[in-house]
Computed example of a mutant assay.
Amino acid sequence: MVKTMIAARLHALHQPMSLDEIPVPAPRPNDVLVQVRACGIVPNMANVINNWPTWFPHQPLPKFPAVFGLDPAGVVAEVGEAVTNVKIGDRVYVSPLRSCGSCKACRSGNRSQCRYYTLNGYFSTSRDGQRIFDLYPYGGFSQYMTAPEYSLVCLPDNLSFEQAGRFGYLGTSYGALKNAQAGPGQVCLIDGITGTLGVAATKLALAMGLSKILGTGRNKELMDRIKAIAPDRIDTIMLGEGSTGEWAKAQTGGEGVDFVISALGARAPAATVVDSMRGVRRGGRVVVVGGVAEDVPVDVKWLMDEQVQLIGSNWFSAAQGQEMADMVRTGALDLSYLEHKIYPLERVNEAISGIGERDGGFSNYVVIPPVPAAYQ
């Protein structure tokens, strides 16, 4: 077993990551050591390593030097003595969701509701998140990383490491669809259908049997591409061409959609969210997963009268990740739409800066760490 590894580490904000040689970590009893084969780059990574502490001081970054990398996939290289269901050689996606494991939320299976909920290789949702970063300081921008057994998703042979590097956004969309109680025969509205979350939600909604998917966006070319995936089941409208809510009602005979997935980014105007909410049927659900930063004025009496549920959705469980992997295994979920933009680890800074030029949710930016000599 090799003793040292290469990792891209951030030593200070607004500085490029550097390639450092550091010791290979040893897994604790309930952990595994994963040799990283690919790590997806989220579109928001540049903001996290440059602007996050100013924008969201209540969601701290790990102390520097830090190894980022949110969406790693690879091969199990070593297992702790208490690991029971994973073996060396298993192909896995490593969900970055970390929690304390012992609070009421964790014991009930709701790890994302834990006070210490932290996204490994990214940021924490808790001011006390450094405790979790100390336990798991390695993200996917490295040759090896440790991870708890509970975080692993086993990958079928027909799911590549590069595709698994998109599981964070796929899973976030899947978690939102599960919160919306999506199912066969339903009609939904995806606000921001051409983005990373929107395209993922569309592919998953098709796999889950929805009869009609309505979507909004701003890029005509990308809107045409998303509709071409399933022309008989997808309809779109350009934002600004009229009221989205009224359009959704018109497309459903005045009834309204079963649920809305708000996948708009942080800079989207609040008025867009309010408009789309009005397209949901009585008793429907509005699931917010994109994170519009502006305050959204909500008519709570309308919520009450229409019995509409407004739900915040954040990340997904490892069990839901396994469901997605099984959907790929059976062919229900087709990820061939992903256009991989692959960078070696030494070009990680270029990859992070270049992701702004992506083709919406179709581009998949992935970093590939070098394979250690012991595995060549």
Rank of each mutant, 00 (worst) to 15 (best):
H14W: 05
N30D: 15
R37H: 15
A38C: 07
C39A: 08
G40Q: 09
N47G: 05
I49E: 03
N50T: 15
W55Y: 07
W55G: 02
G69Y: 04
E81G: 12
K87P: 13
K87S: 15
D90C: 02
D90S: 05
R91Q: 12
V92F: 04
V94L: 04
S95G: 09
L97E: 14
R98P: 03
S102W: 05
A105D: 13
G109K: 00
G109Y: 09
N120E: 14
F123R: 00
T125C: 11
T125L: 14
S126G: 07
D134F: 08
Y136C: 08
Y138S: 09
G139Q: 11
E149S: 10
V153Y: 02
V153K: 01
P156S: 14
D157K: 14
L159S: 06
R166I: 03
Y174T: 05
N179H: 12
Q181G: 04
G185T: 07
V187F: 01
L189Q: 03
K203R: 14
L204C: 08
A207K: 01
A207E: 10
M208E: 12
G209F: 08
I213D: 07
L222F: 02
R225Y: 04
K227Y: 00
A228W: 03
A230D: 09
A230K: 04
D232Q: 15
I234H: 00
E241H: 14
G242Y: 07
T252L: 08
G254E: 12
D258L: 12
G265P: 09
G265D: 14
P269K: 12
V280Q: 02
V280N: 04
V286Q: 03
G290F: 03
V300R: 02
K301L: 09
D305P: 00
E306G: 06
Q309G: 13
L310K: 05
I311K: 14
I311V: 15
S313R: 15
E323C: 12
M324I: 11
D326Q: 06
R329N: 14
S336G: 11
Y337T: 09
R358V: 10
N364G: 08
V371M: 05
Q376G: 01
